[in-house]
Design a protein around this nucleic acid. Structure first.
Lengths: 144, 144
DNA sequence: AACGGGATTAGAACTATTCTAAACTGTGAG
DNA sequence: CTCACAGTTTAGAATAGTTCTAATCCCGTT
């Protein structure tokens, strides 16, 4: 028989707990709740503010400071990736694989572009003493 | 005969004044001083703070608010280009042509990469209703 | 020289983010 | 099962970068 809503919520929590343990993070209530929201569905892009609103709207109580802490810890642990496209706010991406982004600045919207589809050629060697850490491509788009 | 230091300073100011008029900006003392610093030498990358320090160290008096206003007006007028690589501060680039950047985050240093040398292939068509505004490539580097 | 509108300014205000210090809680030992 | 403690959370203060405000100033025209 199908699972009830409560079951799937429990499942998400259980999965989140596992994921946290794997990452070496203690599965506190707040971290489990945030991880459940972040990783339940498909790839997502959030800001601290948007995630805080979301968790609050869900009737859960997590402070904004904890949302910031958690986003950074998750990023540190490789569960999230920070996307820098706007000098006003930070975005975090649940897709940590190789990919790039469309960015619609007027609406703060990010859209993934699979890594395989984009190729960057002709990158010169970095100046002596420096090594390449990552290549970021941002396709800035606007409403046609 | 060679020009004196005072002459070349005057030249820079005269050139800056012309450049401002061409861009449709009134050549005020502050704008001329900032433009002289920005465009006297080769390509430069500045932040509001760094430019304010520079103009202050030169013994000139320009408020930080004016530096911000001016950077935005220059950008608007196509004299500068804003570079988004850091979610904590804004960089402005005197090179407005087609090019990309190395970014050494730990030192807030930007290095130009000529546009011809880099090619981005395989960019998918943007979602319906959106059009590509610009393609930014940032090569994040670290001390080897 | 006087005028008018844009430009500049100091300082307040604002936004996103980080810090602080106190209260709380998961976890392993007993 | 309970205790203790290190790690976590929290409210609120603090900070950094940037923008706003409203008064003053000055460039270009008359």
């Amino acid at each position: 028989m199908g699972k009830t809503l409560r079951d799937s919520s429990k499942d998400a929590a259980a999965a989140a707990t596992l994921r946290l343990r794997h990452a070496g993070l203690r599965p506190t209530r707040q971290r489990v709740e945030l991880a459940s929201l972040l990783f339940k569905n498909c790839d997502r892009h959030v800001t601290a503010e948007s995630l805080h609103d979301e968790v609050t709207d869900a009737g859960l109580k997590v402070s904004l400071a904890t949302v910031y802490n958690t986003l950074h810890q998750f990023t540190e642990a490789g569960l999230l990736r920070q996307v820098i496209v706007d000098s006003a706010r930070s975005y975090f991406d649940t897709n940590t694989g190789d990919h790039q982004h469309f960015f619609l600045e007027s609406e703060g919207m990010l859209i993934d572009i699979p890594g395989e589809s984009i190729a960057v050629a002709g990158v010169p060697a970095p100046p002596p003493g420096l090594s390449v850490d990552r290549v970021d491509v941002v396709i800035r788009v606007k409403r046609a």
